[in-house]
Every structure is written in C-alpha cells, then in structure tokens.
C-alpha cells in the first residue's frame, strides 16, 4: 500500500483490520475488509472511479457519504454501486463505470 494510509495520528487510532484481495479492472489489489471500496482504491492511488454520462469526463468521489453519485462503479457485475459506501469484501471485482453502465436486462 502506498503512503496515503495514515499510520500515526495525534488523536485517532486506526486499529489494524484484516487485509483482503480484490480485483480492480482485473488487476489484483489489496485493501482492508469492511472499508469502503473507494477508500481502498484511493489508498492504492486510483482516483478515477467513473466516467460521466455525456462527455465521459473522469469522476472521482466527491461527498464520501453516498449522496452525490460521482463514484458509481460496477461491482461484481452490478452497475451503479456507490463505491464510497459499499464495503470491501475478499475477492470483489470492481470496474470503472461509463455513464449509466451496462444494462442488467441485456437491452
């Protein structure tokens, strides 16, 4: 993991959690179990989570509380998952979403 993880803090303790492996665009990555997907990706240096509907502009997270829809990703094949609140689990597959993402009904 890169230097973006806070190891020491004057006020807060971040208890060590279980490390899990997950896949981002097919690449194997590591994060902590139960943290939001976006936090694990951010710590791994991934800032672009989504591409916008009309102009395919890159989108990262903005609000981090599941409100703004800037971080919608495809998780285990399901589009429009809010990566800033969805919790990371072992073996998850996470992909960047373009616009509304693939249709689940195949249309």
């Amino acid at each position: 993991m890169t230097g973006l993880r806070i190891e020491e803090h004057p006020i807060l303790d971040f208890p060590k959690r279980k490390k899990v492996k997950f896949f981002f665009e097919g690449r194997e990555m590591e994060g902590y179990e139960g943290e939001p997907i976006a936090a694990a990706l951010h710590a791994a240096g991934v800032k672009v989570l989504h591409h916008s509907l009309k102009l395919a502009r890159p989108r990262g997270f903005f609000c981090a509380i599941g409100n703004c829809s800037s971080c919608l990703m495809i998780v285990d094949g399901v589009p429009n998952v809010r990566a800033c609140t969805e919790r990371l689990r072992e073996g998850m597959s996470v992909e960047r979403q373009v616009g509304r993402g693939p249709s689940l009904t195949g249309r």
Binding site: I6, L12, F14, K47, V48, P58, G60, F61, C63, A64
Partner: peptide, 18 residues
C-alpha cells in the same frame, strides 16, 4: 477527481485513515 467536499476529506482521513 481530486476536487472534494470538505466533509469528504474529513471522512476519508478521520474515519477511514486515508
């Protein structure tokens, strides 16, 4: 990406430790 609300920055650092 990299433009965040102040609340998001606080959440990321103080809740998730990133």
């Amino acid at each position: 990406p990299g433009v965040y609300g102040a609340g998001a920055v606080q959440t990321l650092m103080n809740v998730y430790g990133v």
